[in-house]
Simulated scan of single mutants.
Amino acid sequence: MDASLHSILAAAARAGFDFRFLLDAYERDPFLHGIVVSIEIIVATMAGSAIAGLALLVAVRGRRVWLANAARAFIELTRSTPTLVQLYCGFLVVNMLITQWLQMHHVDNPFKPFFWIVLVLSLHQGAFHAEALRAGFDALPAQTIEGAMSLGLDRRSRFWRIELPLALRTALPTLVNNAVELVKASALASAIAVGDITYQSIMIWTQRDNVLALMVLILLFYGALTWLVSRAGRWLERRLWVPGYGA
Rank of each mutant, 00 (worst) to 15 (best):
I197W: 04
I197S: 08
I197E: 05
I197C: 07
I197V: 15
I197G: 09
T198Q: 10
T198W: 00
T198D: 02
T198V: 15
Q200E: 13
Q200Y: 00
Q200R: 15
S201N: 09
S201T: 15
S201P: 10
S201R: 11
S201H: 02
I202K: 14
I202Q: 15
I202R: 14
I202P: 01
M203W: 00
M203E: 12
I204G: 09
I204P: 06
I204T: 04
I204K: 12
I204L: 05
I204F: 02
W205A: 01
W205F: 14
W205T: 05
W205N: 15
W205I: 01
T206R: 14
T206V: 04
T206N: 13
T206D: 03
Q207I: 08
Q207C: 01
Q207K: 15
Q207S: 13
Q207N: 13
Q207W: 00
R208W: 00
R208A: 00
R208G: 04
R208E: 00
D209P: 00
D209T: 10
D209H: 13
D209E: 05
D209C: 03
D209A: 14
N210A: 06
N210V: 04
N210P: 09
V211W: 03
V211Y: 10
V211T: 12
L212Y: 09
L212G: 08
L212F: 12
L212T: 13
L212M: 10
L212E: 08
A213Q: 07
A213T: 08
A213P: 13
A213V: 09
L214V: 10
L214A: 01
L214D: 04
M215Y: 08
M215C: 07
V216Q: 01
V216N: 04
V216L: 11
L217D: 06
L217W: 03
L217Q: 07
L217C: 13
L217E: 07
L217R: 12
I218S: 01
I218R: 12
L219V: 15
L219S: 15
L220T: 14
L220Q: 09
L220V: 15
L220S: 06
L220P: 06
F221D: 11
F221T: 11
F221I: 04
Y222T: 11
Y222W: 06
Y222A: 06
Y222F: 14
G223A: 02
A224V: 15
A224R: 08
A224G: 06
A224H: 04
A224E: 03
A224D: 06
L225M: 15
L225H: 10
T226F: 04
T226L: 00
T226K: 00
T226M: 06
T226P: 03
W227C: 07
W227P: 02
W227S: 11
W227E: 03
L228G: 12
L228T: 12
L228Q: 07
L228N: 07
L228V: 13
L228Y: 02
V229M: 05
V229R: 10
V229D: 04
V229L: 05
S230F: 00
S230L: 11
S230A: 06
S230G: 15
R231D: 02
R231A: 11
R231P: 01
A232T: 10
A232H: 01
A232E: 03
